[in-house]
Write a protein that binds this DNA or RNA. Structure first.
Length: 388
DNA sequence: TTTCGACCTCTTAA
DNA sequence: ATTAAGAGGTCGA
């Protein structure tokens, strides 16, 4: 498995999934009957697992096969990324606005859309409204800890499965979730769980079957659930229901369309009307084709300066003085004093913050940002030019 | 049928 | 330190 086909560090941290943990360079994730463990180096990805405590006996060989099957399915490994990237790069060159920007598809390889469990994706993205990745992750963890089943332990950390729908239908769930910091989403989750329980028209079985239905049907089905609007519904369509061409639109994606591509924005930027939403979604589908949703996830990642929230940096050239190097957890602060012009390559799993007195010019992927007196976080595997 | 404020909490910026 | 804005939206008037 080439790293250009799948980069775990990017895929598992780009806001698709919220439960993977990185412990000593090993990725871990609890599913129904085991903890799945993955480790990636330059050549390959190794997989293993820790079975559910007191689980029924199976031969090691069967277990390994099952884990492999999960990985293959979860990461959509039957889909070849290289060919898609080639196509997107061509389309990018045709439709981009301006000529001086490098292709994000060159700089951000190995990003793919996962094929996640529909129920978990549904609940996760209900949590995502008006929210950030860090907090969403925390909420998902709390949900598992409170309502999931204990699976086993790895490196001193206890792992719990994602809770079944039935476990979120009791009356006290909303109150408890509020105590756990879910805010107004507590009601959404409880109501959605209840709807899928009671209603004949809505069930988890039908939710899962949306993989066999078309986009329109799936989208409308999801909109019936509390806390699910057009954006969240499209995230579920793309990331769990095999609707690879769907681009979930938000203001950020809108910005990319107008700034980097030749999308003509109608009306003001602030109001995301139904019409604009649909227009943007179709525009990206027009440009990138059948796997537009996949392409968009690369653009989004490329545009996000804090893609790898916590996974980072660094080798800093001598021109940067490590005047104040404070180690706080995994954070390191480096002050840049002199006028410098240097290149930083992100290599290790550390978070680097660069603080400047003066204005700092950051160029990455041909895109230039000016930053003053603030810190930036640099994503892994990326070269960034810094001028000051 | 569209628009617009309110909504929980946490993080980051000033 | 203390405060305000914003976070990959959704609901309901």
């Amino acid at each position: 498995m080439e790293i250009s086909e799948l980069s775990l560090a990017k895929v598992l941290r780009c806001g698709q999934t919220f439960r993977w943990k990185n412990i000593n360079n090993v990725w871990s994730f609890a599913i129904q009957d085991r903890i799945v463990l993955l480790k990636q180096d330059d050549q390959r990805i190794q997989y293993s697992h820790i079975m559910l405590e007191n689980s029924p006996l199976k031969s090691q060989k069967i277990q390994d096969q099952e884990t492999f099957k999960f990985v293959q399915d979860y990461f959509n490994l039957s889909i070849n990324l290289k060919d898609l990237y080639t196509h997107w790069t061509e389309q990018h060159l045709i439709h981009r606005k301006g000529k001086n920007s490098n292709s994000p598809f060159q700089a951000f390889t190995g990003i793919r859309i996962l094929r996640q469990d529909p129920w978990e994706t549904l609940i996760s993205f209900i949590c995502s409204s008006n929210n950030n990745v860090k907090r969403i992750s925390k909420m998902c963890d709390n949900l598992c800890l409170e309502y999931g089943e204990y699976i086993n332990e790895y490196e001193g950390m206890k792992f719990y499965s994602f809770p079944a729908p039935e476990s979120l239908t009791e009356d006290n769930v909303e109150l408890r979730l509020r105590e756990l910091g879910f805010g107004y989403r507590a009601k959404y989750i409880h109501q959605t769980a209840c709807k899928l329980q009671d209603n004949k028209d809505l069930s988890v079985e039908k939710l899962n079957d949306l993989r066999n239905q078309d986009y329109q049907t799936s989208h409308e089905f999801l909109l019936q659930l509390t806390g699910v609007g057009p954006k969240v519904a499209d995230c579920i369509c793309l990331m769990a229901l095999d609707k690879h061409d769907v681009v979930p639109v938000d203001t950020h994606v809108y910005q990319i369309a107008v700034r980097d591509y030749k999308f003509k924005g109608k009306g003001d930027l602030k109001s995301m009307t139904k019409v604009i939403y649909g227009a943007i979604r179709l525009y990206f589908k027009d440009v990138f084709g059948e796997y537009a949703g996949w392409a968009q996830s690369v653009l989004f990642a490329a545009d996000l300066s804090d893609l790898n929230n916590g996974v980072n940096i660094s080798e800093v050239e001598s021109t940067i003085k490590e005047e104040s190097t404070k180690v706080k957890g995994s954070k390191r602060t480096i002050k840049i004093e002199d006028k410098v012009k240097t290149e930083i390559e992100v290599k290790t799993e550390e978070l680097l913050e660069i603080k400047t007195e003066d204005e700092l010019i950051i160029s990455e992927n041909g895109r230039t940002k000016r930053i003053r007196s603030e810190s930036i976080k640099l994503p892994v595997s990326k070269k960034i030019k810094v001028e000051c």
